[in-house]
């Protein structure tokens, strides 16, 4: 326990939800982006997985929508300390997108329209824990929240869920992404409170 702040009581809730350490419950949906919102039209959109020997697997918007979909309901946790519970998305599991991809890579870098990148161990994209989603709360995904489509990896801090995702590069060696190079943790597990480098 840290030092006590004299006169601080906090706002307890009678039924406090189970949140990762240091998080608070947010009812709205804050937006965090490092730059302008890229505007990508669906007919120009593509999603590409490139394996470690350079082979490309590509989907157009129509091809992507034709893949078997899922509707995950998940809790999301932002490194800036808010959490939002029971968010409802619609999209395609990375298990589906990676099903026919030949690889023995251990690492992945997701990259986005607008230039954003984030790195993840490939394992974190597998086993029903990651999706490319195109709808939120029943509606088309707003550009501010990453539309046309964003990555959703809810078991890691939300900066790993790259907005405006354009593709994933599979790599044999880990390579830091945008925030990871700027001092954030390379994995970002909210339950272990891996916020910043060295946590």
């Amino acid at each position: 326990m840290g030092i006590v702040s004299p006169g601080f009581h906090g706002r307890r809730r009678s039924a406090r939800p189970h949140l990762p350490p240091g998080q608070y419950l947010e009812k709205g949906f804050p937006v965090l982006s490092a730059g302008p919102t890229p505007r990508v039209t669906r007919d120009q959109w593509e999603f590409v997985i490139t394996n470690e020997v350079g082979r490309r697997y590509r989907w157009t918007w129509q091809e992507f929508l034709a893949l078997p979909g899922e509707t995950p309901t998940v809790d999301i946790h932002c490194v800036t300390q808010w959490s939002k519970l029971d968010t409802v998305w619609q999209g395609v599991s990375l298990d589906v997108l990676l099903a026919d991809v030949e690889t023995s890579a251990d690492f992945a870098v997701a990259y986005s329209y607008g230039g954003y990148t984030t790195n993840l161990p490939l394992d974190d994209l597998l086993d029903g824990r990651a999706w490319v989603v195109h709808r939120f709360d029943g509606n088309e995904l707003d550009p501010e929240h990453g539309g046309p489509a964003r990555l959703l990896v809810p078991h890691l801090y939300f900066w790993k869920s790259a907005k405006w995702v354009r593709g994933i590069r599979l790599l044999s060696e880990d390579e830091p992404g945008f925030w990871e190079a700027a001092g954030y943790h390379e994995r970002g597990d909210p339950w272990l409170e891996q916020r910043y480098r060295g946590d």
Partner: peptide, 25 residues
Amino acid sequence: ESVADMLVALGHDPARVRTERFGPS
């Protein structure tokens, strides 16, 4: 959101427009 969009419309390279936001959409 509004200012960043206008800067891009004015020809600024999006990579040179750095943003920090607070609050919900």
